[in-house]
């Protein structure tokens, strides 16, 4: 028992000093995530632009009429767009650009799909939507 205690203590000393060393050595190393973040500043700007385009979309009369048919508050939809990640916003804006004239409605339905899905998973709670969609 004493031996186990001793060797455990020795092991702990070795491992904690080792951790300490790596931490001081790493204190000023810049991690890859940080590098990627700096590179993504560019992406963030395009994300903001995409979000602005989507927001404009929700103010269009025909889109608002369609939203009303679905029983969805346009304000809720706009909140949701604001919460989209840069990547998602860019992707969605691209999809709308690529879509044929009538495809905007399809893209909007996609937004609702994301809503439905994240709500079901418990990430969000925007939920007058599910019933409306039904």
């Amino acid at each position: 028992m004493k031996f186990i205690k001793k060797s455990l203590a020795a092991l702990l000393i070795v491992s904690t000093t080792h951790v300490g060393f790596i931490q001081t050595a790493q204190a000023t190393m810049i991690g890859t995530e940080e590098v990627a973040r700096v590179a993504q500043d560019e992406a963030r700007r395009t994300g903001d632009e995409a979000r602005a385009r989507l927001q404009d979309l929700f103010t269009r009369a025909d889109v608002q009429a369609r939203l009303q048919d679905l029983g969805v508050e346009a304000a809720d939809a706009r909140d949701r767009v604001a919460a989209l990640t840069d990547e998602d916003a860019t992707r969605l804006a691209e999809q709308i650009d690529k879509a044929p004239a009538g495809g905007i409605i399809g893209a909007i339905l996609l937004v609702f799909f994301v809503l439905l899905f994240t709500d079901i998973l418990g990430f969000t709670k925007v939920f007058p939507f599910t019933r409306s969609i039904r």
């Binding site: 810049i30 991690g31 890859t32 590098v35 990627a36």
Partner: peptide, 13 residues
Amino acid sequence: SLTLQMGLGNSLY
């Protein structure tokens, strides 16, 4: 790619 080069360096480190 800068991010990939840095990632390789950090992993080797």
